[in-house]
Design a protein around this nucleic acid. Structure first.
Lengths: 150, 150
DNA sequence: TAATTAGTTCATTAATTACTGAACTTAATG
DNA sequence: CATTAAGTTCAGTAATTAATGAACTAATTA
């Protein structure tokens, strides 16, 4: 990792790989690598040399995913952005949600026509996810206990 | 959920939502909803009314993600496909991998310039993921024990 | 060894998605 | 109340990604 510009592009590519707008990743990279948490819209725009429209739309996307947070400063009408403290937790939640959705899809599909052996096999996959769906929230609770002890 | 055709489109949209080719999702839907596990290339193509090229490419994608499996039948040179038994497990693994990647990205970014308060905050996120990275494999082991007991 | 079958590859085209930039809204300041 | 400032919206365009279909390979079969 050499410089900030290169780093920002890398985060952009990471986002692109997962089917999200590269610009959203670049904004995130910009907010991670900036020295402070007070990053104005203008700062982001100048840093990324992109249009206001694109920054506006992608900032909104990142806010909706709780990857970044917005805050204001007294006597200043600019908006400031920083990476969200819960960003990693949110990623995991989103992923768990996607697996849950897929479980539903499996169930719906099987209900259509599937019988016998194949039906049992799919049932096994669904059981596995039911288990995870119960266990993962416990894991989060465990982390909170661990953190409070420290 | 009314009919198979509608269901297949729904799985396509699910895939599209996560930035993957809709056709890959449609193939997956076709393999879930088909009555058996012996689904030939030809069967898939006719069911989806799509080009051989598209089926070929997207089948390969699904194989590479371990979402489907290929098998042959004696005295028959056609290829047959079925949903993978580990498909759900593979989704979770992929998600965990993506979170791991993001942890690396956070670390790289912070190394660039970040100090003080902000650095500590990011450290906290990284710690949370380190915890998960250790715990999730234990969860999978727990499932295996539970399943063997039954 | 000609014909058929099963599937792959890849150039072209179609469809989708993201970015820009200008007009607009909302709110504050002179 | 005109001006500036901060951002949003959206139509048009650019860039990306996926699907088609025809030519091709490789492996049988007549």
């Amino acid at each position: 990792m050499t410089n900030k510009e290169q780093y920002i592009e890398e985060v952009g590519l990471f986002y692109e790989k997962y089917g999200l707008p590269k610009m959203a990743g670049r904004i995130l990279g910009c907010l991670i690598a900036s020295p402070t948490d007070n990053n104005s819209f203008e700062y982001i725009q100048k840093e990324l040399k992109a249009s206001k429209g694109s920054i506006s739309g992608n900032v909104r996307l990142l806010l909706s995913q709780n990857m970044i947070e917005k805050h204001m400063l007294a006597g200043d009408r600019k908006s400031y952005y920083k990476i969200g403290l819960r960003s990693l937790e949110n990623i995991l939640d989103a992923k768990v949600k996607s697996v849950h959705e897929f479980k539903t899809i499996l169930g719906d599909g099987v209900a259509l026509n599937v019988k016998g052996e194949k039906r049992n096999k799919i049932k096994e996959i669904v059981d596995y996810y039911d288990f995870l769906e119960k266990e993962i929230p416990l894991l989060k609770a465990k982390w909170k206990r661990k953190k409070n002890k420290k």
